[in-house]
Design a protein around this nucleic acid. Structure first.
Lengths: 229, 229
DNA sequence: GTCGTCGTTTACATCGCGTTTACATCTTGC
DNA sequence: GCAAGATGTAAACGCGATGTAAACGACGAC
């Protein structure tokens, strides 16, 4: 399970929004936010979520009134995060189908653990993430296996990230700053040759294939499909 | 599920015992009770439970120390019911694999709702007694006997669970988090080398067979069938 | 109690790989 | 054509990840 999930927070408290966003981001999932019932319904209609975190006190409704919509239409699992902590409130939430009922205030680490319990459970069979360039090249970003020219190469993590980035920006040149960020997540500083060395290594891996990494002098690199030949 | 389940309470507080017994009986499940760690171990050895409810403060131990036994041997789901309500206590419990962490005091109705969440959850399909990889390898998960390369090896429980997991995810890499969950039912924390050691031991067992465990550097491991040779 | 089993932790050897260095080669602007 | 800077790439470096033997500690058997 290295799959990223989509998590929707329904809460109008900005401090909670920031905290949850931080937690969700750290877990490697995608964060979405709705500040009231109307926004929540719109979001739920727009896309599917792997988990919804509901506050009860919303500007325009009680969060639990969304529960029905969530279950009937979106069929998404949800948990309640509320300052209404009385037993009968918790009972109501759990009775309406909440997977969990967490009382504010809650520490980020604990929220994270609770979220993890429910995200990890209903995980689909993790699909292999494969990116391709036509029929010339297939890269499994999980195993980092690259099928090319009939062979199979196993890339290093950085090589894999570089190739993914180049494929995403096919035919468009990337400068070193962009590449450095995509590969190592840091700023490029003058004199850093890491990208160049990785490009060099990747070129050898791609030898004989239908694609090539072209140097754009004074700028950076781009991946392109070789003209017939 | 509408079937009656067996629920074990591990708690020495008579008032709690009475309350939980009442709740469990009302739900139509069978109630079992252990007043300390020793009794709990004995009970877990004697029979299988659908849910274990653990107190932390026990006469002879911390309830969480039973977590390992519960998961390793009995593979029973468990929740913690404790008056230790600090965030780090809850984190510890959830990290060790508890499905839920309920803080005392708790009202019967709320406890009932929480229990229902975990009892009603879809029970895992009973696993195959024998799992195989082609004709190369057969593992009886009951006796933990592994037929491989003409020999018969007897695996330890953890080795067996690891191999089962790797077979279920054949040719797909599993990270340490996934492996740790599958083997020990708990979160993986940075620095935990248990999985690595087990992989190492399992590799020795599999020596000479047609399969091998390959390392995916920076990620984890995967089981694959060796190419001809 | 002692002993055996087994999961875990510790310790250390080894390896992989991102990075740096060094130098060859190429591009560009003059 | 030439100098200056940019790029290509082999080799070396070093840190963190992995392999694994051994120690440890909890538990069950007796």
């Amino acid at each position: 399970m290295t799959e990223t999930a989509d998590i929707l927070l329904v809460d109008d408290d900005v401090l909670i929004q920031l905290m949850v966003e931080d937690v969700v981001a750290q877990m490697g999932h995608r964060f979405h936010c709705a500040a009231d019932g109307a926004q929540a319904r719109a979001a739920l209609k727009r896309q599917r979520f792997d988990l919804v975190i509901l506050d009860r006190r919303l500007p325009d409704t009680d969060g639990l009134l969304l529960a029905q919509t969530i279950q009937a239409d979106a069929r998404a699992p949800f948990i309640v995060l509320s300052s209404l902590s009385a037993s009968h409130d918790q009972l109501l939430g759990l009775g309406l189908g909440a997977l969990d009922y967490i009382c504010k205030p809650v520490e980020p680490a604990l929220l994270r653990a609770r979220i993890a319990k429910h995200i990890d459970a209903p995980r689909e069979a993790p699909e292999d993430r494969v990116v391709t360039v036509g029929t010339a090249l297939q890269l499994n970003t999980q195993t980092r296996r690259l099928s090319v020219d009939g062979r199979t190469e196993v890339l290093s993590p950085a090589e894999s990230r570089l190739l993914v980035h180049l494929i995403h920006t096919l035919d468009r040149p990337s400068d070193r700053l962009e590449i450095s960020k995509a590969i190592c997540g840091r700023e490029w500083v003058y004199g850093d040759r890491t990208a160049d060395v990785l490009v060099s290594r990747l070129r050898r891996r791609l030898a004989g294939s239908a694609v090539e990494i072209v140097t754009v002098h004074g700028l950076g690199y781009l991946l392109t499909v070789k003209p017939e030949g």
